[in-house]
Simulated assay, not measured.
Amino acid sequence: FGSGLAVDLLHAVLAAHAGIPSIALEVIEGNERAIAFYRKHGFEVAERRPAAHGVGGHASLIMRRMLPMA
């Protein structure tokens, strides 16, 4: 834990998507560690998906972050 790899990967993804207005991701509801990580990096819950429409049959959250326009 705490190697900084997740932050490095997130920054690489954000850099690769520069110039678009926002980016979204899906996280399984209840994965509090991941949700806290994404919130810390500017993502907010935009939508909740019930289990029938979530990842692998689990309820999930769509989290979105606005990106700076170049």
Score class of each variant (00 low, 15 high):
residue 1 F to T: 15
residue 1 F to M: 15
residue 2 G to E: 14
residue 2 G to H: 13
residue 2 G to W: 11
residue 4 G to P: 00
residue 5 L to I: 12
residue 5 L to E: 12
residue 5 L to S: 11
residue 6 A to R: 09
residue 7 V to Y: 14
residue 8 D to A: 14
residue 8 D to W: 10
residue 8 D to E: 14
residue 8 D to M: 12
residue 9 L to V: 10
residue 10 L to Q: 00
residue 10 L to R: 01
residue 10 L to A: 03
residue 10 L to F: 01
residue 11 H to N: 15
residue 12 A to P: 02
residue 12 A to H: 10
residue 13 V to G: 05
residue 13 V to E: 09
residue 14 L to M: 04
residue 17 H to S: 08
residue 17 H to A: 08
residue 18 A to H: 09
residue 18 A to M: 09
residue 19 G to Q: 00
residue 19 G to K: 05
residue 19 G to F: 03
residue 21 P to W: 06
residue 21 P to H: 06
residue 21 P to F: 02
residue 22 S to R: 10
residue 22 S to C: 08
residue 24 A to K: 07
residue 24 A to G: 10
residue 26 E to N: 10
residue 28 I to D: 10
residue 31 N to D: 11
residue 31 N to Y: 09
residue 32 E to W: 12
residue 32 E to P: 08
residue 33 R to K: 10
residue 34 A to C: 03
residue 34 A to M: 04
residue 36 A to W: 03
residue 36 A to V: 00
residue 37 F to I: 01
residue 38 Y to P: 01
residue 39 R to F: 05
residue 39 R to Y: 03
residue 39 R to S: 08
residue 40 K to Y: 08
residue 40 K to F: 03
residue 42 G to F: 00
residue 43 F to C: 00
residue 44 E to N: 13
residue 44 E to A: 15
residue 45 V to T: 11
residue 45 V to Q: 08
residue 45 V to P: 00
residue 45 V to I: 15
residue 47 E to C: 06
residue 48 R to D: 04
residue 49 R to W: 13
residue 50 P to G: 08
residue 50 P to T: 07
residue 51 A to M: 05
residue 51 A to S: 07
residue 51 A to R: 06
residue 51 A to H: 02
residue 52 A to W: 01
residue 52 A to H: 07
residue 52 A to S: 12
residue 53 H to Q: 14
residue 53 H to Y: 10
residue 53 H to T: 12
residue 54 G to Q: 02
residue 55 V to C: 08
residue 58 H to W: 11
residue 59 A to K: 05
residue 59 A to M: 02
residue 59 A to Y: 00
residue 60 S to K: 04
residue 62 I to F: 04
residue 63 M to G: 01
residue 64 R to V: 11
residue 64 R to M: 09
residue 64 R to N: 07
residue 64 R to P: 02
residue 64 R to L: 07
residue 64 R to W: 06
residue 65 R to Q: 07
residue 65 R to C: 02
residue 66 M to S: 13
residue 66 M to I: 11
residue 67 L to Y: 05
residue 67 L to K: 06
residue 68 P to M: 02
residue 68 P to D: 12
residue 69 M to K: 13
residue 69 M to H: 15
residue 70 A to K: 13
residue 70 A to Y: 11
residue 70 A to C: 13
residue 70 A to H: 14
